[in-house]
Computed example of a mutant assay.
Amino acid sequence: MPLVHISLRVGKPEMYRQAIFDGLYRAMHETFNVPEDDQFMTITEHDAVNFRYSASYLAVDRSDDLVYVQITANNTRTVEQKKLLFRRIVELLGENPGIRPQDVFVNLVEVAKENWSLGDGVAQYA
């Protein structure tokens, strides 16, 4: 049950943002076995003064099209699955909406299954 937060600079059209949602869900479905109806994602847009990044940290050439993706998920995936997820996200977001690989920044936050309540005040996975 991943929860995805996406941050990017303001100004991208709706189709661009929807393509990010679609690509991220597809990558998680393919690599993390996320079920068909498991889509919980938000996009937050920031003006330039509220969006900071290093243009060259670790020799990655980033641009103002940088997209931050933070995925909170159960701590049940292997290192290989995580590598596949990162690679697949870059591939799919490159295809549509056309984001350069250097502009896809992904952070995976792993939590124990009992740390979720998906509604009704119930810990569904505990």
Results as ranks from 00 to 15, higher is better:
F86C: 07
V122G: 11
N33R: 09
N74K: 09
A73G: 01
G23S: 06
M1G: 13
L85I: 04
N33K: 05
S7L: 10
E30I: 05
Q70M: 10
V122K: 14
W116D: 02
D37E: 11
N96V: 11
D47L: 08
N107E: 05
L3W: 01
Y68D: 03
T42A: 06
M1I: 10
R62L: 08
H5L: 11
M28V: 02
S7W: 09
R52W: 11
K113D: 15
A123Y: 06
D120S: 14
F40K: 08
V60W: 00
E114P: 03
N115Y: 05
F86V: 12
A19P: 01
T72Y: 00
L85Y: 03
V60S: 01
G119V: 05
L92M: 02
A55E: 13
H5M: 09
D38R: 06
R88W: 04
V34G: 07
Y57F: 15
A73C: 12
A112K: 08
H5C: 12
L3Q: 12
Q39M: 14
L93C: 00
Y53C: 02
I6H: 09
N33Y: 07
P13I: 00
A123K: 15
V10Y: 14
I71C: 06
E91N: 13
T44G: 00
L85R: 03
A123R: 15
Q124V: 04
I99W: 00
Y125F: 15
S54L: 13
H46S: 04
L66M: 00
A48D: 12
L3N: 04
R17M: 15
M15E: 09
D22G: 00
V111Y: 04
L108D: 05
G98D: 11
V10H: 10
